[in-house]
Computed example of a mutant assay.
Amino acid sequence: MTSMDIVDEFEENCCIMRYTTAGQLWNIISPREFVDFSCTTDYEDGILSCGVSLDYGEVKPGYVRGFNHPCGWFCFPLKDNPRHSLLIGFIQTDLRGMIPQSAVDTAMASSLTNFYSDLRKTLKA
């Protein structure tokens, strides 16, 4: 993910977010833009965040509009070590455009690895 902006807010925990990704595999896969409705709430001792893409606004020049089917993230502290949390994500992303499936599989695996690595570094800081 290269950028993330809140486009509109509805309630304390619900908003429309626009985020972008960089091109992948020497820009064989063009940069993508996603616009999602997202809602986050407390769940037991952790949080639950759910979202789905919207057909909202104009696509930024040079980007392809991707689409996230309903997805969700659960984050909650580990009972035996409350200083650590477990993050579980369910995503169903359609990158759209004309991309060979093997390129999608390679790029998604790399992007998810980088996402979790960056998230871990951010949380430690």
Rank of each mutant, 00 (worst) to 15 (best):
V7G: 04
V7Q: 06
V7P: 09
V7H: 00
V7K: 04
V7W: 04
V7M: 09
D8L: 13
D8F: 10
D8Y: 11
D8I: 03
D8N: 08
D8V: 14
E9S: 13
E9Y: 14
E9Q: 15
E9T: 15
F10Y: 14
E11I: 11
E11W: 07
E11C: 12
E11N: 11
E12D: 14
E12K: 14
E12G: 12
E12S: 15
E12Q: 14
E12M: 05
E12N: 13
N13M: 07
N13S: 14
N13F: 10
C14Q: 09
C14M: 02
C14P: 02
C14A: 15
C15N: 07
C15I: 11
C15K: 12
C15E: 09
I16T: 13
I16K: 01
I16Y: 13
I16E: 04
I16V: 15
I16G: 02
I16N: 07
I16P: 01
M17Q: 14
M17R: 12
M17S: 03
M17W: 06
R18H: 05
R18W: 06
R18P: 11
R18Y: 08
R18K: 07
R18M: 05
R18E: 13
Y19K: 00
Y19A: 02
Y19D: 02
Y19P: 00
T20K: 03
T20P: 13
T20N: 08
T20Y: 04
T20R: 07
T20D: 08
T20A: 02
T21D: 06
T21Q: 06
A22P: 00
A22N: 08
A22W: 01
A22V: 07
A22I: 08
A22R: 01
A22K: 05
G23K: 00
G23Q: 07
G23D: 06
G23Y: 00
G23N: 05
Q24M: 05
L25W: 01
L25M: 08
L25R: 04
L25V: 05
L25F: 01
L25I: 09
W26P: 00
W26L: 08
W26M: 06
N27H: 15
N27G: 10
N27F: 13
N27V: 09
N27Y: 04
N27E: 04
N27C: 07
N27P: 07
I28M: 15
I28S: 09
I28T: 15
I28R: 10
I28A: 12
I29E: 01
S30P: 11
S30M: 13
S30R: 13
S30H: 14
S30G: 07
S30K: 15
P31C: 03
P31R: 11
P31A: 05
P31V: 10
R32L: 14
R32Y: 10
R32W: 04
E33W: 05
E33F: 02
E33Q: 10
E33T: 04
E33P: 08
E33Y: 05
E33M: 08
F34C: 02
F34G: 01
F34W: 04
F34Y: 15
V35H: 06
V35W: 02
V35P: 11
V35N: 02
V35T: 15
V35M: 02
D36Y: 03
D36L: 03
D36Q: 09
D36E: 12
D36F: 00
D36M: 01
F37L: 15
F37A: 09
F37W: 11
F37M: 11
F37H: 08
F37D: 00
